[in-house]
């Protein structure tokens, strides 16, 4: 199963999030859907109600940013490292 790593900022809202958590799924969309089951409300933190990634959120698979920010169709495979991170912004 893919392993998912998170920005620590998300633990402000989901204190039990575990770094490197094993999450089943064949695409980023499926991984986030599983995370939503484990942590209700999670999907609306990283994406909006249409399912697209929020503007200032980045998801990387194998150190590459995902291509499909609207449908999150990028494939993930056994053992892949998925990173859910904050884009640099703010002030």
């Amino acid at each position: 199963m893919p392993h998912v790593n998170f920005t620590r900022h998300l633990q402000t809202f989901f204190p039990t999030l575990k770094m490197g958590e094993e999450v089943p799924g064949a695409s980023v969309r499926e991984v986030i859907a599983e995370l939503e089951k484990r942590y209700p409300g999670f999907a609306l933190y990283v994406g909006d109600e249409t399912g697209r990634l929020r503007r200032h959120v980045h998801v990387f698979v194998r150190e590459e940013p995902i291509c499909d920010r609207d449908e999150l169709s990028d494939a993930v495979s056994q053992g892949d490292e998925v990173y859910i991170l904050q884009a640099l912004s703010g002030g």
């Binding site: 998300l10 933190y45 990283v46």
Partner: peptide, 25 residues
């Protein structure tokens, strides 16, 4: 800016805050 708009509420005069349900289209 990162995690989107949401509502929080406090029913104890501001001592503690909780998430209200999300507003979604």
């Amino acid at each position: 800016a990162h995690w989107g708009p949401a509502l929080m509420r406090s029913r104890d005069g501001g001592a503690s805050w909780e998430d209200a349900s999300r507003v979604v289209y």
